[in-house]
Design a protein around this nucleic acid. Sequence first.
DNA 1: ACCCAGGCGGGCG
DNA 2: CGCCCGCATGGG
Length: 296
Amino acid sequence: MDGLTTESRNQVLRTSIFNMRHTIESAQPLTFYGDYDQGSNRLRYATANNLIIVTFYGTTSKGRLLISARDVLKARADVSRRFRLDDDIKSIYDEIRTDRIIASAISKYRGMRVTLNDPWETTLCFIISQFNNIKRIRLITRNILERFGITIYDNNGMPIAKALPTSRVLAEAAVKDLMGCGAGFRAKYIKEAADYCTNNLDLYAIGGLDYDNLKGELMKIKGVGDKVADCIALMGYGKLEAFPIDVWIKRTLERHYFKNRKKSIKELHRFAEKRWGRYAGFAQQYLYHYGRNLGR
DNA sequence: ACCCAGGCGGGCG
DNA sequence: CGCCCGCATGGG
């Protein structure tokens, strides 16, 4: 089925309070390079050595994830980890539902999860995201996937999917070829970050750092500033207290919490930390999409 | 044609 | 520190 061999097996994961569509459409790294079919509620994405197909069926309050893959046991663990199905999302909602604004955001996007992605892939995706729009972020990411991605083969040796390239691959890429993927002025950031993360910083060895120190390490990467570092901390390392502040969340906070007065990034960080604390990242995801989609 | 996008680095006061 | 500027590119 779908490029997998007859040796493929299925696994079922139960979950509660989950909305695949909201999660996928919330533009987290997984969605930048995975295929999602809204009709069948099916996501198709590749990891370093596997093609994984996840289909969600059920209701937002309760449902099941059907998983198909070559190595289905690995895939099951991967899906559970990536969608953070162990999060007690009801308790999280209770903790961040501090006012009617975020209450309506939660109500509107109920079941949207904060995903956990590979640290390097998250770094790459959010370097691409700077001063860019979601459509083009996806375009550039897909181009890099096609041009530099690691091909995944089925058991008969047929290519079935591609996974994002490692930092080592992009460290050796030509800036001109990254430009060819549409990366624009970010091409040199991508190459430098790839080189740095291959030769100077092991992204897979710093997950144990606390949030502040982790963010500090990430900001040493060229092309990674305050906002991108928070995105990586949140979606690449699961630091739920990270609160990425972009133009949208800034507008939303100023509008709904500060009577349209301009606030500095620093002030907004303090506000979010004080108000939403250890789950500020969840609050950010909900407010971000709520603010963006007002009027739509 | 013009404007904007999940910002950042660098230079300046 | 805070402020200001340029930056590749495609879609509205």
